[in-house]
Simulated assay, not measured.
Amino acid sequence: MVKVLKSGFYSSIQDFGRIGFQDYGVPYSGVMDRYAASMVNALLGNNENEAVIEMTMTGVTLQFDCETLICLSGAYMSPKLNDLLIQNNKVTKVNKNDVLSFGKLESGFRCYLAILGGFETEMIMNSRSMYKGITPKYYLQKGGKLSVKRCSFSKTKHHARLKIDNSYLKASIIHVFKGPEFDLLSGEQQERLLSNTFTISKENNRMAYQLKEPLGNNLDAIITSAVLPGTVQLTPSGKLIILMRDCQTTGGYPRVLQLKESAIDVLAQKFTDNTITFSLNS
């Protein structure tokens, strides 16, 4: 069992999300940065889809009631175990009553904490991912307790030498494919979309990232159609909206671009006033 002493700004339990329920209007949800979540589980020898804690901008404070192993990846939030700094991307042993806390955000925006065997919260629609309206709680709360899967050290293997590439945390190029309505844009609009630098607005969360600079839009609305995490929509006012993991399943705005899966990981580590450029993959 793990006790939540402080919940942080927006911390939640996430795995790879809900697949196969979009026909019913259920969002995919799941970790915003799949690369980081995969790495922490891999380093511990967990299955890649084991539930982790996703922390946004600020970290949680946790107390452990048993010996176990943990690992952190993604954003670096100056983590401390019993007030001693520990590293990201390294398996760390914790003892009973140890306290994990976080300090200053040094790089990235979202940090992931995995525990040996994974967090064992309620499974709903084949996922433990928290989402408002689907799960009873949609973020961690102070005083809450998290169950973990018991796993003997002697029967586990972890991969401490796994090579981690953190360069994506500072990347600003977002690799994309053409969206279904891309070719309806004028040549000038297409050029601006793919050559301009765009700024992340303060309207950024697990549902979508909005960009400050307008593109200009004279396209007609489309019939409500399927959208995915990574779909870039162009609103009537010319605002660009990049849908993220908790996005709706359909939308009526032209879909001008679609992010590569790895580009969603890059964007998930960006925050207000960071800048990005789109790079079209052939």
Results as ranks from 00 to 15, higher is better:
residue 201 S to I: 03
residue 28 Y to W: 05
residue 96 K to S: 14
residue 244 M to R: 00
residue 280 L to C: 07
residue 279 S to D: 06
residue 201 S to N: 08
residue 158 H to G: 05
residue 162 L to G: 08
residue 105 L to E: 07
residue 220 D to Q: 12
residue 159 H to Y: 14
residue 244 M to W: 04
residue 175 H to S: 13
residue 35 Y to D: 09
residue 53 I to Y: 04
residue 63 Q to D: 13
residue 86 I to S: 11
residue 213 E to R: 03
residue 64 F to Q: 14
residue 171 A to E: 13
residue 209 Y to N: 00
residue 107 S to K: 14
residue 22 Q to S: 15
residue 22 Q to E: 15
residue 271 F to C: 02
residue 199 T to D: 04
residue 226 A to N: 15
residue 58 T to Q: 00
residue 120 E to V: 01
residue 55 M to I: 11
residue 90 K to Q: 15
residue 168 Y to V: 05
residue 192 R to M: 10
residue 220 D to I: 09
residue 240 L to C: 00
residue 89 N to D: 09
residue 110 R to E: 06
residue 210 Q to N: 00
residue 256 V to R: 02
residue 21 F to K: 08
residue 15 D to E: 13
residue 164 I to G: 07
residue 213 E to Y: 01
residue 278 F to R: 04
residue 10 Y to G: 01
residue 279 S to G: 02
residue 59 G to F: 08
residue 163 K to H: 03
residue 90 K to S: 06
residue 110 R to H: 15
residue 90 K to H: 14
residue 86 I to D: 13
residue 6 K to G: 04
residue 137 K to I: 15
residue 4 V to P: 10
residue 159 H to F: 15
residue 117 G to S: 05
residue 211 L to C: 00
residue 39 M to V: 05
residue 36 A to Q: 12
residue 50 E to L: 09
residue 272 T to R: 00
residue 16 F to L: 08
residue 200 I to N: 02
residue 152 S to T: 01
residue 203 E to M: 06
residue 167 S to F: 11
residue 139 Y to A: 01
residue 77 M to C: 09
residue 273 D to M: 01
residue 190 Q to C: 06
residue 104 K to T: 15
residue 132 K to M: 08
residue 25 G to M: 06
residue 105 L to A: 12
residue 134 I to M: 14
residue 199 T to V: 12
residue 229 P to D: 11
residue 251 G to S: 07
residue 216 G to C: 12
residue 187 G to Y: 09
residue 245 R to G: 07
residue 16 F to K: 12
residue 205 N to F: 08
residue 136 P to S: 13
residue 199 T to A: 12
residue 196 N to Q: 15
residue 273 D to E: 13
residue 243 L to V: 06
residue 235 T to I: 00
residue 159 H to S: 06
residue 23 D to P: 14
residue 232 V to L: 00
residue 278 F to M: 06
residue 203 E to I: 00
residue 231 T to H: 03
residue 118 G to P: 05
residue 143 G to C: 11
residue 116 L to I: 14
residue 40 V to K: 08
residue 47 N to P: 08
residue 33 D to F: 10
residue 65 D to Y: 11
residue 80 K to S: 09
residue 261 E to W: 11
residue 214 P to D: 11
residue 143 G to Q: 07
residue 195 S to K: 09
residue 219 L to F: 12
residue 77 M to T: 01
residue 174 I to W: 02
residue 132 K to V: 13
residue 170 K to W: 05
residue 21 F to N: 13
residue 150 R to D: 03
